[in-house]
Design a protein around this nucleic acid. Structure first.
Lengths: 208, 208
DNA sequence: GTCAAACATGAATACTGATTCATGTTTCAG
DNA sequence: CTGAAACATGAATCAGTATTCATGTTTGAC
């Protein structure tokens, strides 16, 4: 478990195994990409190191030059997914004044991203069983952002008052469920329609 | 799913290994209960047959008297969760005329159930990776019920018009997300509050 | 009571797959 | 150019564990 840092002092996650040359950099990236593909497709347990390295076009031992453990690649992928999603959404909602509109654009961007990266989506789901801490961080970070957006909107009078904590989780649940529609159940409903229907619900509810 | 008669001829899923005596019945049940507990706690892969049988208080070989495969117990647990949840919700919403109120009562019952059976909840989530077919059936069955409820309510003028397919998935997503709050993130927010906040959102939306 | 069918046992089998290691090959600073 | 550090290889190790099986024990119909 604990891993003494090379000479620094990170208590939580020492970033060892960093490549020093361009070649190493490329190899590491290839392995990471292969891991995303293979683990996303076969699941963590059926994805063997052999599968991953052969997909990456390197020998099995090469894996351990850049990663200390099978679990470590997995964790890295979860973190990557988190960073990418947040970045994508932040970019998509950049400069949208009305926060309700921003949320809608965010949902749209999220679904687009999920459709483009189905493997990463499944990996995050599996994290609940492979790396619960990463899973938790992924969702709590996400929820915190959602929540503060809602609170700002509430303060600005752009949405009604309500429990923004529960709202945040509920809205995340909607986004996740629709994402699953696309990636897991392979729905062919176009994203714009999904977003439109969902946002009609979110804005107006279902009261007659 | 379909249940072959004792001596009929199902090609897909022979229901062999049915105990014939009271003792066998009890043992099988003990193993199933142990499997729920152990797999729910450690996850499918880390839950070995040895763990399960020792939790059940029987020898390792006994497992294979009642189950042909580790995967089979797992599948059975997913099916059980589906049956139990549907039954619980049906019972809780029995005789409620207003369908909007019925949905609320259903959410309440669902969250109660989830809190009482955290292991089963995790098992369903893991089914996406261990037994995708069971996972799919669980959610599509659930969604179909949700959807037809919404359509009936719409026809009866009890809710506004809208895409009931997407609505069903969105509402399921909310329920699931709140369930996860309880079971995975161990929120201490009382269920009635969760339900109240969520249903305010579902009924009225967040428009000011 | 008896005995065949059910049930139970736990050691042995058989295989998978993560991780290590001894041995080359490539890179690049000086 | 050159040699030490990086990088790469893939066969060998090593542990875990699903499943089988030969051998008892219990049950219940008669």
């Amino acid at each position: 478990m604990r891993k003494p840092a090379e000479e620094a002092d990170m208590p939580t996650k020492a970033a060892v195994n960093q490549p020093k040359t361009a070649r190493g950099e490329a190899t590491r990236r290839a392995i990471l990409a292969a891991a995303e593909k293979v683990i996303g497709a076969k699941g963590y347990n059926d994805a063997s190191i052999g599968h991953i390295t052969s997909e990456a076009g390197v020998a099995q031992g090469t894996f351990y030059i850049y990663f200390t453990t099978k679990e470590q690649v997995f964790s890295e992928l979860v973190l990557e997914m988190g960073r990418l999603v947040r970045h994508t959404i932040a970019e998509a909602t950049q400069g949208i004044g009305n926060r309700l509109e921003a949320e809608k654009a965010g949902l749209y961007a999220f679904l687009d991203f999920v459709q483009a990266h189905p493997d990463l989506y499944r990996i995050v789901q599996e994290a609940l069983f492979v790396d619960p801490a990463a899973y938790e961080e992924y969702y709590t970070t996400f929820a915190a952002g959602y929540r503060s957006g809602l609170e700002a909107a509430e303060a600005a009078g752009q949405i009604s008052k309500g429990d923004s904590e529960t709202r945040a989780w509920a809205l995340m649940g909607i986004a996740r469920s629709l994402g699953e529609q696309l990636v897991v159940f392979k729905s062919d409903k176009p994203i714009p329609e999904l977003v439109a229907s969902a946002y009609d619900l979110i804005e107006n509810g279902i009261k007659p």
